[in-house]
C-alpha cells in the first residue's frame, strides 16, 4: 500500500505535465482542428500510396489489397501510437544545438522520461484512427479462422509493434548525441522503417530483409503477424510461426535503444552554457 502511494506520488509530476500539454494543444481551437485534419490526411495519403499500386495490379508480393490492409493497419496504428508518445525524441537535435537540453539535467527526473513527457502530440490520434480503421477493415474483409490463439497474436502484435517503433525513436535519440546535424541519417531507419513496415515485405531482397526484416525488425510489426493471421506462408522458407516472434523483436529493439541512449548520454558534455 505504501509502495502504491509512493508510486502514485512519483507519477504525479508527469501526469501534471502531460495534462497541461494536452490542454495547451487544444486551446487554440482552429489551429488544433487543422492539426487534426492534417494528421488524419497523413494517414490517408500513406494508405493511398499503397492503394494506387493495387489500382494497377491485383496482387503484390503474394498479397491482395484486403490483405495488405491488415499489414498496413497493424504497422501504421503501432507507428502512430509510438510517434504520439515517443516521437518527441526527434526534437533532441534542436535541444542539443540550442543548449536547452541542460535544463532537463537540473530536474530530479530521468532524462528520457522527461523528454518523452515533455510533449504528447494529441493531433496524432487522428492518424492512429486511420490505422485503426484500416486494421478493422483488414480483419473484417479477410477470412480469418478465428481462435483464441488468433486473438492473442493480434494483441501481442499490437503491443510489440508499438514497443518496437517506440524503441526506434529512442535508438534514434541516442544516436543524435553523436550526429547532431545529421538527424536525417536516423530518419532513414525510423521513417524509412515505417514505410517499410507497411509494405508487403515479400517483395524485399535479402539485403533489405537483413536491414528492415531483422536488424530493425520492421517486418515483425505488421507483415509477419498478419501472415499468420491470414494463414499465408512466410517468404524465404521462414517457419509459419515466425509472426509469434514479434515480442522478441520488441525486446531486441529496446536493447539497442537503451544501449544507444546510454552511450549517447555518456557522450554528451553539456551545451557550454
Amino acid at each position: 500500500m505504501a509502495d502504491g502511494l509512493t508510486l502514485r506520488a512519483r507519477m504525479r509530476p508527469y501526469r501534471a505535465v502531460l495534462a497541461s500539454r494536452a490542454r495547451s494543444q487544444s486551446s487554440y481551437r482552429a489551429s488544433f482542428a487543422l492539426d487534426l485534419a492534417s494528421s488524419m490526411l497523413v494517414g490517408v495519403i500513406e494508405l493511398a500510396e499503397i492503394w494506387v499500386l493495387f489500382h494497377n495490379v491485383v496482387e503484390l508480393g503474394g498479397l491482395e489489397f484486403s490483405q495488405i490492409l491488415l499489414v498496413f493497419g497493424l504497422a501504421d496504428l503501432c507507428f502512430s501510437l509510438a510517434d504520439m508518445t515517443f516521437g518527441h525524441c526527434d526534437n533532441l537535435p534542436m535541444y542539443l544545438r540550442a543548449g536547452t537540453l541542460d535544463v532537463f539535467y537540473l530536474r530530479p527526473q530521468p532524462l528520457l522520461l522527461q523528454l518523452v513527457t515533455s510533449d504528447i502530440s494529441l493531433r496524432r490520434l487522428a492518424r492512429a484512427g486511420v490505422g485503426a480503421v484500416a486494421l478493422v477493415a483488414g480483419l473484417a474483409l479477410n477470412d480469418i479462422a478465428w481462435s483464441p490463439a488468433h486473438v492473442l497474436l493480434l494483441v501481442l502484435a499490437i503491443v510489440s509493434g508499438y514497443a518496437t517503433f517506440a524503441g526506434m525513436f529512442v535508438w534514434a535519440g541516442g544516436v543524435q548525441f553523436f550526429l547532431i546535424e545529421g538527424a536525417e541519417t536516423t530518419n532513414a531507419f525510423v521513417y524509412g522503417g515505417r514505410y517499410a513496415a507497411t509494405q508487403p515485405a515479400s517483395v524485399w531482397n535479402r539485403p533489405l530483409w537483413a536491414v528492415f526484416g531483422f536488424f530493425f525488425p520492421m517486418a515483425f510489426t505488421g507483415f509477419l503477424p498478419a501472415l499468420w493471421l491470414l494463414g499465408v506462408e512466410p517468404p524465404y522458407g521462414m517457419p509459419d510461426w515466425v509472426g509469434w516472434c514479434a515480442p522478441l523483436a520488441a525486446v531486441w529493439t529496446w536493447t539497442m535503444a537503451l544501449l544507444s541512449w546510454r552511450f549517447g548520454v555518456r557522450h554528451y558534455q553539456g551545451g557550454g552554457g
Partner: peptide, 19 residues
Amino acid sequence: AAFGGLVANTTFGLLKVAV
C-alpha cells in the same frame, strides 16, 4: 546534414525499388 540526407534518400530509394 547533407550526408544524412543522402543515407535517407538511398534507403528510401532501395525500398521504392523493391515495391
